[in-house]
Design a protein around this nucleic acid. Sequence first.
DNA 1: GCCAACGTTGGC
DNA 2: GCCAACGTTGGC
Length: 157
Amino acid sequence: MAKEKQYWLMKSEPNEYSIDDLKRDKKSGWFGVRNYQARNYMRDAMQIGDLILFYHSSVKEPAVVGIGKVASAPYPDKTQFEKSGKYFEKRATKEKPVWLLVDISYVKKFINPVLLSSMRADKKLKDMVLLKRGMRLSIQPVAEKEFLHIESLGTKK
DNA sequence: GCCAACGTTGGC
DNA sequence: GCCAACGTTGGC
């Protein structure tokens, strides 16, 4: 049941977890997602090998800053069991976890961050989920042609 | 720091 | 099951 490769965009605040953190760690669990739609993408849709646009949000110049890759099957987010942590989920049990996540591995950091403002101005990206009004979902599907275009913008000298 | 747009919660 | 109130996200 090998499906075609899929593409995603995942937002992170760089003071929480940045592309440089991922570069250092090589691989990391995507902890702390507490939105059902984002969880469902990780739990039901993502496949090992899918590529990720790594996006920095809540900064002066929001931008896609690099690429990652889905590196695991979904598994329970351990932070939901940490009673004193901010991600604690009282409805969750070990048998029935509420929140699942996948591991993301580092692929590359862009030479040129692709700014949100330049993506908005780019006709080729006019249908991107990210650019839709009111869109704040932290994990979003990305079309292949959008992914390839952003990758070329980010990596060209 | 503001605030629009969403998502979640909880009373009824 | 509705919906008002509240909380959060995230660009500006």
